[in-house]
Nucleic acid binder design. Structure first.
Lengths: 181, 181
DNA sequence: CCCGGACATGTCCATGTTGACATGTCGTCG
DNA sequence: CGACGACATGTCAACATGGACATGTCCGGG
């Protein structure tokens, strides 16, 4: 049921077409939070329209339909954001792999953790300059660029995983290539 | 397709029945990594058995079937663990909410972030003593208890989210209850 | 000895999701 | 002016999933 809320949330910062929303899911939201292809987005927008949560604000060239939130839609988004259920839905392949590291032979585990650490380090190198550039352009007092919080979240996530991988290597007792007694 | 790998990974540290595996999913793996109920687990075990990745090692009381990994199963688990696809499957309601914080009115966003920070702080309070107790019991040199790495991951995750929520409150300019000029 | 709760396995259906198929338009570059 | 790539929307079949339904067993306490 969360696809609907993802769409409501994306529409909250301005009207968009199904195509625009599809591209949004190609970005970090699809990478870290929730995946969706156009084949689910178009029918869901239609259902949301039926439910009165969005309206077709404008019909443009090539059949483009620009959707906008209604009051009901905004209300439903707010309700969902502020009302967290006890158990939320999670399905994350990456985290699953981390839970299962200990099912590997120590040698494989070491290689995997080293790979994770390297990958995180690379992503951090990649993300940090983007965030810093965004902050440099930003006038204090202005609203933050949409996605700035999400970007920071991603960065801190990578830092946490990086730290975890290094800690795990040490705890597995295979991280001392320089050799200790 | 990852349910299969979750089951293979759980079976890697010892034979278990469908019932045992169901209970494993009630724990932290189901909370942070991958959810599954018994209605999916039993059929999946049957299919895995057909595929030769597991075998019924023992049939006990009450129709209990204890499954064990085969060589093929272990091989498939290893393949999956070491071979990461470019795009992994993610669907996380909590992260989605974090991505959409900026779609709320500033006042709602503040309340939400404060709630997140408080929740994380509570979970950290809860988890840290468990980890410390486990470490105190642990003899250096022995293999780590299964799940120790996962627990550490959860702890660091909460710490990261906690830090992010506080940072976000500050960046939104609503975090100075003591008042600055 | 009987009852309740934990143990234990399964099926079924409505809904959610993925990937392939299908169709057509607009703008631009050669 | 023709081809190509990006824009744009949709459907459908196969598969995954979650929750309800269904069934039966073992064990300990009253």
């Amino acid at each position: 049921m969360s696809l609907r809320h993802a769409l409501l949330g994306l529409l909250a910062h301005g009207p968009a077409s199904g195509y625009d929303l599809t591209r949004a899911f190609d970005g970090s939201i699809g990478r870290y939070a929730w995946q969706a292809g156009h084949s689910r987005i178009y029918p869901e927008l239609a259902k949301m329209s039926e439910a009165g949560q969005v309206v077709v604000e404008e019909t443009g060239a090539r059949g483009r339909k620009t959707y906008a939130l209604t009051e009901a839609g905004r209300h439903e988004l707010r309700r969902w954001m502020l009302h967290w259920p006890e158990q939320t839905s999670v399905r994350d392949e990456t985290v699953l792999r981390m839970f299962l590291v200990q099912s590997l032979e120590p040698d494989d585990a070491r290689r995997l953790l080293e790979g994770i650490a390297a990958h995180c380090a690379a992503e951090i190198e990649n993300l940090r300059p983007i965030m810093e550039a965004e902050d440099a352009e930003h006038t204090p007092g202005d609203p933050l660029p949409f996605g700035r919080l999400a970007g920071e979240y991603g960065l801190r996530q990578y830092e946490a995983v990086h730290g975890w991988a290094l800690w795990s290597l040490e705890r597995l007792g295979v991280a001392a290539p320089a050799g200790r007694p």
